[in-house]
Design a protein around this nucleic acid. Structure first.
Lengths: 166, 166
DNA sequence: GGGTGAATTGACAATCGTTATCAATTAGAC
DNA sequence: GTCTAATTGATAACGATTGTCAATTCACCC
């Protein structure tokens, strides 16, 4: 890949569709580079762009969606690279992988506070929630069975208020 | 498919490897036929064998595992039939589909009492548990967000006591 | 700065679990 | 038994994910 073209493209002006996914301010470059280095990885232009997209974009995105945003800005970046880096970041707990049913995995920057998900089966909107009582009851269950808990998946599915009306 | 050969094979004596999966007594034929009829489906030899295997075998099996048991007894039964029927039964809530991570779906006869799973990340053993307090807290969370809850997935992962010792 | 080796990349093939297709067969109602 | 719609098995197709590998790039040394 011709990486030298990336800075050039970055300054490009052509309007990009998938940008609509972006909602938050990305972390600054220094911070992003540090995050990559802290994972024990080399700092490449691809990884900067991918991680920047993750920090800037909405949560709960699929690898495909990340790829589309990234690839729209830098067509040289292949989707294998996106997949690989997302997997690596999940491994490093920098992002969290959420798999619902047989659907493609969704990724979110690992939130400082743990939370679970409430998903609308009709419109797929995801609401995050945290409930310390449930958490502690889970710990209690694990203890009763002499398990040392490593993690858990709690996904609630239902119909949101808007979809109930329709 | 030559179904007429099935009764013949059923009496066959050749020892079958995957039988080791069987742990419980299957439901009797009359009951199994009734279950299939109650789903609004035709009673076929294939479905009898598959459902018999489900009622007789261990819980939390993959479609592939069911297929292997079934196919060992009746090589004429294709795996598309197994997949289709499992999916249909899941749809009818006769069996419950459990998907953990990106792994193949596992099926169990829907237990009379709802329960969740505690899985050992080391040896994959699955412990079932039920906790009404967690259930009601989930309802409460859904209510707070104006969702009408349809179902949920609660999977706890940890290291079982035996694996902790090793 | 340039040189070097290992990590990373992109294109693409391969794999996995699952689902669709379709002609042939079968269950169930008459 | 006859008829028709449901079911079946073989196989292709599918979508998500992972592996392969030659070419490129980063990070470190000088």
């Amino acid at each position: 890949m011709n990486t030298s073209s990336i800075p050039k493209l970055a300054k490009g002006r052509k309007p990009v569709e998938p940008e609509k996914l972006i909602r938050r301010e990305p972390f600054d470059l220094t911070r992003i580079k540090r995050m990559i280095r802290e994972m024990g990885l080399k700092v490449t232009q691809q990884r900067i762009v991918i991680l920047e997209t993750m920090t800037a974009g909405r949560a709960h995105v699929t690898a495909q969606e990340v790829f589309e945003v990234v690839n729209a800005r830098f067509p040289e970046i292949g989707f294998a690279t996106v997949y690989r880096f997302l997997r690596k970041m999940a491994e490093m707990h920098l992002v969290t992988e959420v798999r619902m049913g047989g659907l493609p995995a969704r990724y979110e920057l690992t939130p400082r506070r743990h939370h679970d998900h409430l998903t609308c089966v009709s419109c797929s909107q995801i609401v995050e929630f945290e409930n310390p009582k449930i958490e502690s009851l889970q710990e209690q269950v694990a203890k009763e069975h002499n398990f040392r808990l490593t993690h858990h998946v709690l996904e609630l599915y239902g119909v949101c208020s808007r979809c109930q009306r329709e």
